[in-house]
């Protein structure tokens, strides 16, 4: 995945419940449960519409006041996890 990819959450095969600032998802086909922590939930909500990875990182850096390098590293790792669980469409 590169910073120029456009990403969009894939919620078709999931049931979703918002628990305060966390999210619980169930993969309907696999029967797995996924708990997304508060920061992950913020990213998940931003992925409701297609967004370029670099724009996503930029908005998180602005929101949380963290270093770009740190944010880039953490965000890419999180997006890769979403992709592993079929929770992400990448264009």
């Amino acid at each position: 995945m590169t910073q120029h990819d456009i990403v969009h959450r894939n919620e078709k095969q999931f049931m979703i419940s918002n628990l305060g600032n966390e999210i619980v998802l169930m993969d309907i086909q696999q029967g797995h449960y996924i708990n997304v922590n508060p920061v992950g939930s913020v990213i998940w909500n931003k992925l409701a519409v297609p967004i370029m990875v670099k724009d996503l990182i930029h908005s998180l850096v602005e929101e949380y006041g963290v270093s770009t390098a740190q944010c880039e590293d953490d965000t890419l790792k999180f997006l890769q996890k979403l992709q592993q669980h079929h929770m992400l469409n990448v264009q």
Binding site: M15, S17, L19, G20, V24, M26, I28, N35
Partner: peptide, 17 residues
């Protein structure tokens, strides 16, 4: 409260399926 709500969500998913 959070633990209860997590359990409720999981159970709601199961019941939905």
């Amino acid at each position: 409260f959070r633990n209860y709500c997590r359990a409720l969500s999981v159970f709601a998913f199961e019941r939905q399926v």
